[in-house]
Design a protein around this nucleic acid. Structure first.
Lengths: 213, 213
DNA sequence: TTTGAATAGTCATATTGTTGACTATGAACG
DNA sequence: CGTTCATAGTCAACAATATGACTATTCAAA
């Protein structure tokens, strides 16, 4: 149940419509959480039923009517409660890492391409985050802003996002270089090679060496 | 459907039982994916039904009988297919970041404690990863190992895990310092202060200023 | 002038992931 | 002599996320 708190946290900086929220949680900027529009609309509806956010309708001349949401006092209290409770550890969970884990057993070509593609995506996000940070701190230096500026929360999470993407980019470039080097070194370069040359692990137990079922 | 591939990738380095797999995917080391035992047993069963892994029973004298699984040729082919397909982007999704995003609106005390706790956890993981890396490369230097060593996949994913945790630690320490400074600076230091002093955003649309429903 | 993108939002279904409890055995602690 | 830990595995129920399809309107470009 952390999406609800992510939504509350996102609404602290001012009213947003479901649509605006969806964009913030989806494309790129998802600094501290990621979710699809459907999830957000559903969560907003739940939060409103429970009185943690309130919406007000805004009729627009040029665009469809929208509803802007803000956090209520009850919502703020819920956030407070959440912030004081224990956090569950965060884990890496990434398709690309799974593929790299298997790098020695699969075709290196497509893998290298994907790792490089990811490096480029990371680079783009780095640029974006840098721009956002500059905008947030205005004409103050980073140190000043963090000492004296208003609302440092979003700035800090954006810093994490930036560092994460820098880590991503660096690792992707290094990984691509390693894989490229190695697939150039072997004769059949690029095509899966290692199949089963493992050091036979000297069974220490009485093993029933048959595949049952 | 990436858990199945994560399992396949993990089994490439040798046979494992569900239990061993569970430990690898759970406690700390979860380099490239994370999952609970129940998921893994279920996934192993599915993979076996589909012929992507095969198990063989090992009767032990001292411990309960276990089943060791290995990847079949069909499993290897499936991994190959997966590795060549497009990867979905990876996102940060972290309780703690949600809380920091709301840092300006909630009590700083518990937050600072949690951020520091997380820094310590990251530090522990860093140590663990360093040990694992040392063990994997044996007496070779990192560069040599990445050029000439066998199976660099796990080494590379572990490097990513290490960098991730270093990023975590650094960010946590910085964040803790910033929050601590700021909560020392304000008179009511530590207790939630900002409630709603936002710059009224000068409505540009004809707004129906009533909360409906 | 139709096509496509952007705004604004919704529904149903499927897949994944989490929580909590439960069965067994042998080893080690005190 | 009982308790707890580590191994080895399973079941059921639930919560969270993801996928895909859908309705509207308006603006801008091909």
């Amino acid at each position: 149940m952390a999406l609800r708190h992510a939504v509350l946290a996102a609404l602290l900086d001012g009213e947003l419509s479901g649509y605006q929220l969806a964009k913030a949680f989806d494309v790129g900027v998802a600094n501290f959480w990621h979710a699809l529009p459907q999830q957000l609309y559903a969560e907003l509806a739940r939060l409103e039923r429970e009185g943690l956010v309130a919406g007000r309708q805004v009729v627009q001349e040029t665009r469809p009517t929208k509803r802007l949401f803000h956090v209520t006092d009850a919502g703020l209290a819920e956030l407070e409660r959440f912030a004081a409770a224990a956090s569950k550890p965060s884990f890496i969970r990434d398709d690309l890492l799974v593929k790299v884990q298997a790098a020695d057993h699969v075709d290196a070509g497509p893998l290298i391409r994907q790792v490089e593609e990811r490096a480029a995506m990371a680079e783009a996000k780095i640029d974006l985050f840098r721009r956002i940070l500059r905008k947030m701190r205005g004409d103050l230096g980073e140190e000043e802003f963090l000492r004296e500026g208003g609302r440092v929360g979003p700035y800090l999470t954006c810093l994490r996002g930036l560092a994460f993407e820098e880590g991503n980019r660096d690792w992707c470039l290094r990984t691509a270089a390693v894989l490229r080097d190695r697939s150039a070194a072997v004769p059949g370069g690029g095509t899966a090679s290692i199949t089963r040359e493992g050091t036979a692990p000297a069974p220490r137990n009485q093993e029933v060496a048959h595949a049952e079922r």
